[in-house]
Design a protein around this nucleic acid. Sequence first.
DNA 1: CAAATATGTCAGCTATGTTGACATAATTTG
DNA 2: CAAATTATGTCAACATAGCTGACATATTTG
Lengths: 177, 177
Amino acid sequence: MNRAGAIKPESDQILDRPMGDNDGIDFEIIELLFFAYRDFISDPDAILDTSGFGRAHHRVVHFVNREPGLTVAALLDTLKITKQSLARVLKQLIDSGYIAQVAGPEDRRQRRLFPTDRGRELALALARPQSRRIANALEGMDENGRTAVTTFLSGMINPGAHRPEEDHSEINEGRDQ
Amino acid sequence: MNRAGAIKPESDQILDRPMGDNDGIDFEIIELLFFAYRDFISDPDAILDTSGFGRAHHRVVHFVNREPGLTVAALLDTLKITKQSLARVLKQLIDSGYIAQVAGPEDRRQRRLFPTDRGRELALALARPQSRRIANALEGMDENGRTAVTTFLSGMINPGAHRPEEDHSEINEGRDQ
DNA sequence: CAAATATGTCAGCTATGTTGACATAATTTG
DNA sequence: CAAATTATGTCAACATAGCTGACATATTTG
């Protein structure tokens, strides 16, 4: 390779027409989702930089605050990560007093997770700018429009997905290793 | 600490009421966005696992296909990552024949990026399931509803953001290091 | 009691981002 | 033209957040 990379095309088939418009693919919404999510997540990122936490902590703090007393297994299922991956961030959050563990009242093997005051405050601080951004994007939209937005977003989610306040009944399947 | 972590609450202030409903924060859409994006990105992830590529490659292949001939600087600006971070994945994509570089016709310092046939095919293969998911989520929605969705997503994006086919004129500001 | 379950933990690996420093070629400017 | 700036590449070191595999401990269940 030359010093600054290949200069000439390697006589490969090079395409210079933009992708899109031709095929029946919705590139517009694909990209809107990419940019929307990127900016949506950047709000809390800025706050997290201050606290020394990252996105992983954000998610944990969020869901523990949304469903206090949820088990580690339920949290893993929501986040779709492994317990080893969760362990690091959870330990940090517990050690710094944002989340507390309590042995399950029925099943004492469980560690039920609760937010502390601090944890609640952090979760709210992180949610606030995101909610503001959402309110701004919904501004001037009528009820039909808002319904369309939530219908669309719900329709993007996998049917069997485990979301809070849903199917708590089924037996565990996978991802726990 | 005990072998399996703290068992009893450290007499900290523990909260057992779910967050939400109380404050004026839109937790519903916050979570819908999280789950929607998580599942939206999982479709191409499965394909990428096969090719040995990751999400970073996906983004590069996507934008190069959407705007063939874009410069490295423009790509960095779109992705909002550093050139060192881009370098790794871009090199892999070039070495394996998905993307080709051509010296800029006007400014020969530039390396304009083009997809090869292979690169075009990969980008289409990755976009197809995402587009299918979107079509599914929009199904049965009238024109007003669809407009509401794109209006909402556009409204979530930072105003000054650099998106393809937009402001090519301004001078560089930051992120290049 | 034995097996299964919920959780924790150690060790090592990968992907993708970061900063800092420096190099080269080409363009622009004084 | 020489100097400065620009576009890009590259080396090195590091951080975060995932992953797999293996094993330990406490508790519940059959």
